[in-house]
Design a protein around this nucleic acid. Structure first.
Length: 553
RNA sequence: GUCCCGUUGGUCAAGUGGUCAAGACGUCGCCCUCUCACGGCGGAUUCAGGGGUUCGACUCCCCUACGGGAUACCA
């Protein structure tokens, strides 16, 4: 018996021949320079900012080159399967404007290079495994878990590198008779790659592989020497094998993945070589980090950092465009510069490059997100902002939703306060913050939250509001309105200009700012707000007078 | 332990042998100003450490330290 017969025995009557498969996956007919990228999540359904970060690179690279971005579900580990995960992943990315052209979708596979779930590609992997066995490049391994453990312990004691390789790959050279014996006993087995690498050579003779990484430039690593498992005992491929076969067949040109894959790159390179596939361009992205309890940088973790799940940003009401902009600023170091020069352009016009990506992990910066968000929201028209706010409220703050729902034009006016000026206000960050920021416009949410300034007594406050109520005229323009406030100040012994008060604090009780603070407290309940005159224009005469009359300190 | 990747201010970073070492966020001060926000001006805070190479190193080489990752029939 030879390898070929063994292959036939192990994988009899496969659905596909290699030639047949090749015919099913023709080269993609795309314009030159088009990038084909993919996102390959395992279906746990959990997506966090780090995943979005990577997905963004895929999406940009594909779409700015008129290429294809597809979704492939990497479900080779049934322990990781969560029901409804695919929909969750698609929805989460969709919210942030990331759409797939091809692959798994809510209504099934789209595209001619499927199936797009690895669990449905078993026969395809088997065909390639069969070939490797026939060529003597892979072999069945009957090592039990205990035996492997033993080997590891021995290696640890000997200070040898762990793994199944060289002399530790005990089943790599089993005789056909021995294999038949195991088989006849019904021993479970995995298929391992028969690695061509040899690290027992003198240091200077170990072969190194050179790979040009799209982000990191040229990489040099020792070649793989591990007889890695390519097919598990249950017949499913491991990630390593599925990655190589799928990305080849599906025509992926650029493999974007986290840097945690860097150390298994030699395995993949060997697999590509053994299968005689062309190597795609790898882009190993830096991980998004966060600070742990001890002040150390740490990779974002699914379990430990629920606040970095995409759900968190949705819940807080960060606008997807803002998150996009922020991600772009940390993804490409020249994005901010470009944005400054092109304030009105869509971020899709930004020429994204992997060369401008950092190879070291960035710390997630909430301050920066907020700042970017302010700039972003300042450019979004009030009616769209209203829709966004309403949408958010319908899920996360139902009482606000009830209030906002029937007040469209009113809310739009509120959102537009000071935004159309030459130097527009930028105080809107996220939906939850926006609602908090404007809630005093609604009687149901209006309360006086802050006390009078110390310069103003309760009596004076009452006096101020009384005069104000008498002189208030909604038809006054802004400067006329403020003249009247100054008049009240003067009448009650307050300086008309803050500077006067600063120069001679003894001459006055306070200054005009204190007067308007009282009016502000009566109208909005806070000592800080946008321009009062504008607020009154929106509140309207009745509500303004009512609040002035009702206010008590 | 071994292997891989990384290290410019509090954060994100430009930089590729000769720069007073950009810029943004944050922070502090001032200006504008009825408050806030916006805007303007200015300050403080950086090349992890040590050796080389060189007329000259943030830039090139080596060592150390620190951080991250891998080391599965998980991805």
């Amino acid at each position: 018996m030879d390898n070929k017969q063994l292959a036939e025995q192990l994988f009899p009557q496969l659905k596909y021949t290699l030639g047949g498969i090749q015919g099913l996956y023709p080269r993609r007919n795309l314009p030159s320079g088009a990038h084909v990228t993919r996102l390959g999540p395992s279906p746990t359904g959990f997506i966090h900012l780090g995943n979005l970060y990577g997905a963004f690179v895929d999406e940009r690279l594909a779409h700015q080159s008129d290429g294809i971005f597809y979704l492939r579900i990497e479900d080779t580990d049934d322990k990781r399967l969560v029901a409804g995960a695919v929909d969750m992943i698609i929805d989460a990315l969709d919210f942030f404007g990331i759409h797939f052209d091809e692959g798994a979708s809510k209504t099934g596979d789209i595209g001619a290079y499927g199936p797009y779930a690895q669990s449905r590609r078993k026969e395809i992997y088997h065909a390639y495994v069969k070939q490797l066995i026939a060529l003597g490049l892979a072999y069945p391994c009957f090592l039990t878990e205990d035996e492997i453990q033993e080997i590891h312990q021995y290696q640890e004691a000997e200070k040898a590198n762990p793994g199944i390789y060289g002399i530790y790959a005990k089943h790599r050279d089993l005789s056909m008779d021995e294999i038949q014996h195991h088989l006849s006993q019904g021993h479970p087995y995995t298929i391992r790659l028969k690695s061509g690498g040899n690290h027992d050579l003198p240091q200077d003779q170990i072969r190194y592989i050179q790979v040009e990484d799209g982000i990191r430039g040229s990489l040099s690593m020792p070649e793989n020497n591990q007889d890695v498992v390519i097919l598990k005992a249950n017949g499913m491929p491991t990630y390593h094998f599925a990655h190589v076969v799928d990305d080849h067949l599906m025509g992926t040109t650029h493999v974007i993945r986290g840097e945690e894959w860097l150390s298994s790159l030699p395995i993949h390179v060997e697999l590509f070589e053994k299968l005689a596939f062309e190597l795609p361009i790898y882009c190993h992205t830096a991980q998004l980090m966060k600070l742990d309890e001890n002040g150390n940088k740490r990779k974002l973790s699914k379990r430990k950092d629920p606040e970095l799940s995409l759900g968190y940003y949705k819940e807080q009401g960060y606008h997807p465009l803002a998150v996009r902009e922020y991600l772009l600023t940390i993804l490409n170091s020249n994005f901010e510069e470009w944005r400054l020069a092109n304030p009105e352009k869509s971020s899709e016009e930004f020429p994204f490059t992997t060369e401008k990506m950092s190879s070291s992990g960035a710390l997630f910066d909430m301050n920066k997100l907020n700042d970017v968000s302010k700039d972003t929201l300042a450019k979004i028209p009030a009616n769209l902002l209203y829709d966004f706010l309403l949408n958010w409220a319908s899920v996360y703050q139902p009482d606000a939703w009830a209030t906002l729902k029937n007040a469209g034009p009113y809310v739009e006016k509120i959102l537009d306060i000071g935004r159309k000026d030459e130097k527009p206000r930028k105080d809107l960050i996220s939906a939850s913050q926006i609602f908090d920021f404007i809630q005093y416009f609604f009687d149901d949410f209006f309360i006086i939250e802050e006390p009078l300034p110390p310069e103003v007594s309760s009596e004076d406050a009452a006096e101020i509001l009384k005069s104000y109520g008498q002189t208030y005229d909604p038809t006054d323009n802004q400067s006329r309105w403020f003249e009247k406030v100054r008049t009240i100040a003067a009448e009650l012994g307050y300086a008309v200009k803050p500077k006067d008060f600063k120069k001679n604090p003894d001459l006055y009780k306070g200054h005009v700012g204190h007067i308007s603070t009282v009016i502000r407290l009566a109208l909005v309940g806070r000592s800080q707000s946008p321009d009062l005159w504008e607020i009154q224009q929106i509140l309207g005469k009745e509500k303004t007078l009512e609040r002035i009359k009702k206010a008590a300190f």
